[in-house]
Write a protein that binds this DNA or RNA. Structure first.
Lengths: 182, 182
DNA sequence: TACTCCCTGTAGCACTTGCTACATTGCTAT
DNA sequence: ATAGCAATGTAGCAAGTGCTACAGGGAGTA
């Protein structure tokens, strides 16, 4: 019974790695299982559902991302909103963050069309992002700090969107000249 | 031979309407055909491919969106970047624009996973958005007007992302207090 | 030794997918 | 009237989907 938990965790990690590399578009049970080097039968032994498997994998990804973010911008320091936006923008378009943001967009798209488990997942993750930013901005002079945090997150997410479909140079220039707008 | 063109156009319009309502997530040929009240056989008579049918429908949607945008912010007027960003943000979160933005996110997600015809489509549309903004901002004092336009588009797209997965009130507050950041 | 029960493979089901082959209708030009 | 071709329906294919039934191996317990 312990073996099962261990196996499940290993599979979960393998799935997370796979999703980061390939995205979660129209991925099937069998592909998922192959990525974790097990049979589809075993995948459904560890997880009750395809949806549960995906949720677990995404939870893993989200956890990794959180660690990365905490490392990048440790919480005690309070930032001016503009400065935080600029720093976060640079972080977002950086190479290590790209796979995460790409995946994030796919989750949002899944949520947009109401496909389980994405709506729930997306809300959770978005709330996490917003809380993360809110915790780090100096609320002095802000009428609605949470709204400002949301705007910053929107800016970040938007850069991720553009990163998918505009050429890299332009995205970097946009992230770099953020100050011209803010 | 003329009948065919006419039929094709009608089907294209029906598909566009359907996509706006339901999104394009994992939509199948048969669903698409049903939405246009024809058989799947006929859909493949009008279009060579599922991909071509989707492209045509999305082109139609994009054209409609362009009209809406031109109406909302006519081109000759030059805006200060911050003012344009604020106006565009309000427009983005407004009810009539929501379905378009939702669809746009799905296109980007398709592009993110490299699924034809979305990468091409997404680049085109994104380039259109950026050009639209660039044409309307006052370049005076901007080091890189296109980069600034890109940032504005990113902000807009980000709001669309957040609109999918945060509660409506928060999104509206973010759009309203944009000035606190810009 | 026999029983139980966790683990895991094999096989398959009912269904959906994109797409095609073929047959049939109906109009048009000769 | 008839030949020819555009338009459309019917049927089906091979592949893939999520998921399940069933059986067996192996380890621990009585």
């Amino acid at each position: 019974m312990v073996a099962r938990e261990v196996g499940r965790l290993q599979v979960q990690a393998a799935l997370a790695r796979h999703l980061l590399q390939t995205g979660l578009g129209a991925i099937s049970l069998r592909q998922l299982a192959a990525a974790a080097r097990i049979s589809d039968r075993m995948l459904l032994y560890y997880f009750t559902d395809k949806a549960e498997a995906l949720s677990a994998a995404m939870a893993q990804v989200a956890a990794e991302l959180t660690v990365q973010l905490e490392t990048a911008l440790p919480p005690p320091t309070l930032w001016q909103p503009r400065a935080l936006a600029a720093a976060a923008a640079q972080l977002t378009v950086s190479a290590p963050m790209r796979p995460y943001m790409r995946l994030w967009i796919e989750v949002v798209a899944g949520a947009a069309r109401g496909e389980v488990p994405f709506p729930q997942l997306a809300s959770q993750i978005a709330a996490g992002f917003i809380a993360y930013v809110e915790l780090r901005i100096d609320p002095a002079g802000l009428a609605d700090p949470r709204a400002t945090a949301t705007t910053i997150v929107a800016l970040i997410d938007g850069l991720a969107v553009i990163a998918v479909c505009a050429d890299e140079d332009l995205v970097n220039r946009a992230a770099a000249t953020l100050g011209d707008l803010l």
